[in-house]
Simulated assay, not measured.
Amino acid sequence: MAYVTVTLWSAKEMSDEMLATAQEKYVPMILSVGATGVQMVQTGETTMSVVTQYADADVAAAAQAKIAELRSQASSEFTMTLEGVHSGDVIAAG
């Protein structure tokens, strides 16, 4: 069963440079640790969510140590604050 994590972030600003770095650096890094997909969604002027998909909960669990490192690196590089993490099995999809 597919598994998803959703992280909620706030930042001092959302610059074009930050968004480009997210796409060019962080998306590939997340995919390299086992994610099957990732979307970074700007939810407000200075907020965003990162939705990461995995094949199943076991793959997600195996990736979490590296994902924690990436979260720490991103929060330092962009002066961002991790506001919350939600995760679970996908129960319906289209």
Rank of each mutant, 00 (worst) to 15 (best):
Glu24Met: 07
Lys12Arg: 13
Ser76Asp: 14
Val85Ile: 13
Ala57Glu: 06
Thr79Gln: 13
Val38His: 01
Val33Gln: 01
Met48His: 14
Ala92His: 11
His86Arg: 15
Glu17Gln: 07
Met14Arg: 09
Gln64Asp: 07
Asp58Gln: 12
Ile67Glu: 01
Glu24Trp: 03
Glu24Lys: 14
Ala74Cys: 07
Val41His: 04
Thr7Val: 12
Asp89Asn: 14
Ala60Asp: 05
Met18Phe: 08
Gln39Leu: 13
Lys12Pro: 09
Leu8Thr: 15
Met29Trp: 08
Glu17Arg: 04
Ala2Trp: 07
Val27Ala: 07
Ser72Thr: 11
Met18Asp: 04
Thr46Met: 09
Thr79Phe: 10
Ala2Ser: 12
Gln64Gly: 09
Ala74Gly: 04
Gln39Thr: 15
Leu82Asn: 12
Trp9Gly: 04
Asp16Ala: 15
Ala62Gly: 08
Ala65His: 02
Val90Ala: 09
Val90Pro: 12
Ser10Gly: 00
Ala93Val: 11
Thr79Ala: 13
Asp89Thr: 13
Ala35Ile: 01
Val50Trp: 06
Gln23Asn: 13
Val41Trp: 07
Ala68Val: 00
Ala60Asn: 06
Thr43Arg: 00
Gln53Lys: 12
Val90Asn: 10
Leu8Ser: 15
Ala20Pro: 03
Ser76Cys: 06
Glu77Ala: 07
Ser76Thr: 11
Ala35Arg: 04
Ala35Cys: 08
Val27Tyr: 00
Thr81Pro: 07
Glu13Gly: 03
Val50Met: 14
Arg71Trp: 09
Val50Leu: 10
Val51Asn: 04
